[in-house]
């Protein structure tokens, strides 16, 4: 069958395939050249974003693009993973961390532009359940202990995980609830554990469930945990990219701050 594919001999087929490939490649190269040389299609700004900031980051990137014309490519993951990748030469130009420690460390390690660190958001912790009846508005469910699994992020790598543990300790419930904690690698996973019903409830970021009418939640009072300061930093790879600098400037603008607030974060200004 292979020997006379569509009436051609095998070698003829191979020759034609190679010819077609070369033609396609030429078209692609010309296309890429035209696209990249026009200013409207300037190179995208590569931004590493902590997973909790996913929803607002999409909105901010869209607003930034329509205002400035710069494209933004967003990558989502845990801050710890991003830090490891940046240290190994990942091409990200801007880093929106879920904490203050990693941008500071990036700066100290010479991976970031000195003096470019600033707080773009202050996160809020929420106790959430996919079950509409489970979590009461005062979090009394924690005291009742009528659940088998409570999801929380890894406190060693995720600031929201640290906040979850601090909350349990502040309520004096840590020792009795500890055996019921299932640890998620990041906030997205904590959300999956709870949304799939495997864990009845758990600590996630308010931004993740803010616009979710399903389920039940208790917004944990900020007196129970130390503030979740989320810092941004300009990385060395983006030092000379006007797009990267413009993105960071835009992150401090009224438009961006309005979006950030709409997802339940506060900002240093209020």
């Amino acid at each position: 069958m292979m020997a006379n594919f569509m009436g051609y001999s095998f070698t003829e087929t191979i020759r034609r395939c190679i010819g077609l490939c070369i033609k396609l490649l030429t078209f692609a190269l010309v296309g890429i050249f035209i696209l990249t040389s026009s200013p409207a299609w300037a190179r995208n700004v590569l931004v590493a974003v902590a997973a909790n900031f996913m929803a607002p980051a999409h909105k901010i990137a869209a607003a930034f693009h329509s205002k400035t014309g710069y494209g933004v490519e967003l990558s989502f993951g845990s801050s710890g993973q991003f830090y490891a990748q940046i240290k190994q030469g990942a091409p990200f130009e801007v880093f929106l961390s879920a904490d203050a420690a990693r941008p500071q460390k990036a700066e100290a390690d010479g991976l970031a532009v000195p003096g470019s660190v600033f707080t773009y958001a202050i996160g809020k912790l929420v106790l959430w359940s996919a079950n509409a009846q489970l979590v009461d508005p005062h979090g009394a469910i924690l005291r009742s202990g009528t659940f088998t699994h409570i999801a929380n992020c890894n406190p060693d790598s995720a600031p929201y995980g640290t906040a979850g543990i601090q909350t349990l300790k502040a309520l004096g419930l840590y020792n009795q609830i500890d055996p019921k904690i299932v640890t998620a690698a990041n906030l997205s996973q904590a959300y999956q554990f709870i949304a799939s019903g495997n864990a009845e409830l758990g600590f996630v970021a308010l931004s993740q469930v803010m616009n979710n009418s399903k389920g039940s939640k208790w917004i944990v009072p900020q007196t129970l945990y130390s503030p979740i300061i989320q810092d941004a930093v300009l990385l060395k790879t983006g030092a000379k990219d006007p797009g990267a600098r413009a993105f960071l400037a835009f992150l401090k603008s009224k438009t961006a701050i309005k979006i950030i607030h709409s997802y339940g974060y506060s900002t240093p200004g209020g």
């Binding site: 490891a84 460390k105 060693d156 640890t183």
Partner: peptide, 25 residues
């Protein structure tokens, strides 16, 4: 990683330990 929940002694296996070590620098 996706179904374990990282519980020491119950679901925390070696590959998860490596992942956590990298995550926490």
């Amino acid at each position: 990683l996706m179904i374990g929940g990282d519980i020491p002694g119950k679901t925390e296996v070696l590959s998860i330990i490596i992942f956590n070590d990298v995550e926490t620098m």
